[in-house]
Design a protein around this nucleic acid. Structure first.
Lengths: 341, 341
DNA sequence: TTTAAAAATGACAGCGCTGTCAATTCATAA
DNA sequence: TTATGAATTGACAGCGCTGTCATTTTTAAA
């Protein structure tokens, strides 16, 4: 039934250890030997037993994905990206949803790391943006890759995959400005998330670049939720300064803003333009479909996982920073500002 | 650092094997001995090493979740349910997204099962509804739990968790009828999915029970997608018989139908009532919010995983069938039928 | 050629646990 | 009490691999 390393060794006429070397891509194996082994591997459909590897060796063959995020689309995208990297490299994925605010969270993760041999962790916000947390994890001697918002790494604790929200927000805001909008509302996500900070920074930058005034009354605190979008839009549309466009920090907020507009009888995009951020599937399923910024989550996640795997194999330098910039996707929720109605 | 079974044995003053017995809940250990061991376990924060267990023993400590479903909400819910059962019982979860139509799918799963020691698989549609597939998996000597649609198990290959879509569809349809609708459109999901068949059956049953005519022109083939909802609704609203309500086979279809209504200038729910199915988060984020049926996915999944774990421990009878009936959730997308406008 | 250093390969122990089976302890009836 | 079988506990091998270190083979310089 299932072939073991022994079977392969016999079949290839070499020692067990040589097969092991080949399977681990170790250098000192002559090419002909390597070929013989690989042939046997193929013939017998051999795959190293993960349990045995874990038990015998000191290397790790799993990576863990720690997250605290209610956004199903985001999580699935990240997960698929990581999974795809893992599958290609014979790694295993441990999923660990958890609550970043819970008291025992540090112990929880520590325990998990101590009890499973783990090559590294993929950290997304908010975990990736908590330096103390990252330090604590690193002290456990596990690698970490952080996916976070910004245009360059805040420190060199661990490799970062940066999402240039600043740049992307400028594009969105510029798009709105190009359509003639000068009074643009902003509904924020949680202010503890770097992405919120960066998106706000990009928004402000674009206004500045176009010599438009930044009006604090147009900037609404919120969180990354539909409900927050509803509230934020209501507040904006009933405030003293009524914007003609709303920059929402993510698609859910935008969907909420859309909902509120309906509620208030404001038509989108005729009377009000609304933008989202993330390009999640439902940004295509609202009415009108959302103008947004596409965040290539699966690609980001796959990159993160690959980095971790490379580090586990000692074939990665320590502090690479990769950067992705979400691209503007124009759909139907934004349009030319009309003159006074 | 990490405690092994040896440490626990020493600390408790018993043999390694006795600790093993306690950890595996085997019967023949005297209570005082058991207590001593458990105390040591707690003191040392001991947790059996999964790799070693897998390598040494014949039992399995992982369950796999095989799915082919583009619906992120569904997948996350299922996954969380399974994960929660696994965590409680010290099991591991292997996630395996895949394509049920791909040619090599059987080999793919077979390989996966052969290469990782797996206690059992949680199968969702379409896999759970392919008897040949299930038989093939069972031949590999892995347990299977099927989550599927229907009001009783179609065969006794493996335990089933049935979702009574028939009943739930009757509730939805009855709700529409109670609102005065007599001409109710139906947009189907893929006809290969039992859920589609069952939902259609429930719809027809309710019509029959209320002595309403079943009009084939009101029943539209489709699939579980937004786009299909758009097409289906367009077709219905431009057909010879114009319904005053539409039963959509899931929330996404309903969202599509909503979108199409906007496109055609039909107002929901005033001129047209629309229902969804699943109660996914976005059924709360459309305008108007969807009347739908709540499917308790995490609970279903946790139940499935628990069943698998119980079977792995030989403490479950072989052919249990559990049943869940989704409950009607009335929101804003349905209303009283108005007289001719 | 010869020879030393380098490269390639192999022998073997042992990772932390469970299965098997033997040894011990306990409970019960004679 | 003692004998007898049942209940409890333990000794030990070995799961499939990798790490260490010894051995063999190759390479290249003398």
């Amino acid at each position: 039934m299932k072939a073991t390393i022994n079977d392969v060794a016999k079949q290839a006429g070499v020692s067990i250890k040589t097969v092991s070397r080949v399977m681990n891509n170790e250098p000192s194996v002559r090419q002909p030997t390597r070929d013989k082994v690989m042939e046997a591997v193929k013939e017998l459909n051999y795959k190293p037993n993960l349990a045995a590897r874990n038990l015998a060796g000191t290397k790790a063959y799993s990576i863990a994905f720690i997250y605290d995020n209610p956004n199903a689309y985001y999580v699935i995208d990240m997960q698929n990206g990581i999974l795809s990297a893992c599958k290609k490299q014979g790694f295993e994925l441990l999923i660990h949803p958890c609550n970043s605010n819970s008291e025992g969270i540090l112990d929880e993760i520590t325990n998990m790391v101590k009890h499973s041999r783990i090559a590294g962790l993929v950290l997304t916000p908010p975990f990736s943006e908590m330096p103390e947390f990252v330090k604590h994890i690193l002290a456990l001697e596990v690698d970490v890759v952080r996916i976070m918002s910004g245009d360059n790494a805040p420190d060199d604790l661990a490799p970062c995959i940066m999402v240039n929200d600043h740049q992307a927000s400028m594009s969105i805001t510029q798009h709105l400005i190009d359509l003639g909008h000068t009074s643009i509302g902003f509904i924020a996500g949680q202010s503890e998330h770097m992405s919120t900070v960066e998106r706000l920074r990009g928004y402000k930058q674009a206004l500045k670049d176009n010599h438009l005034e930044i009006d604090q009354r147009l900037i609404i605190d919120g969180e990354y939720s539909f409900e927050s979008g509803v509230q934020g839009a209501k507040q904006l549309m009933s405030g003293e300064v009524r914007p003609t466009a709303i920059f929402s920090c993510n698609d859910e907020i935008a969907a909420g803003a859309l909902f509120a507009s309906r509620l208030m009888g404001v038509s989108v995009p005729e009377q009000l333009s609304i933008t989202g951020f993330e390009n999640s599937p439902f940004s295509r399923q609202t009415w009108p479909r959302l103008t947004t910024a596409n965040q290539p989550n699966p690609k980001i996640a796959e990159g993160a996982a690959n980095l971790l795997i490379a580090k586990a194999r000692k074939q990665a330098p320590n502090n690479i920073t990769t950067e992705y910039t979400p691209q503007l996707v124009v759909r139907d929720s934004t349009s030319q500002k009309v003159k006074e109605q």
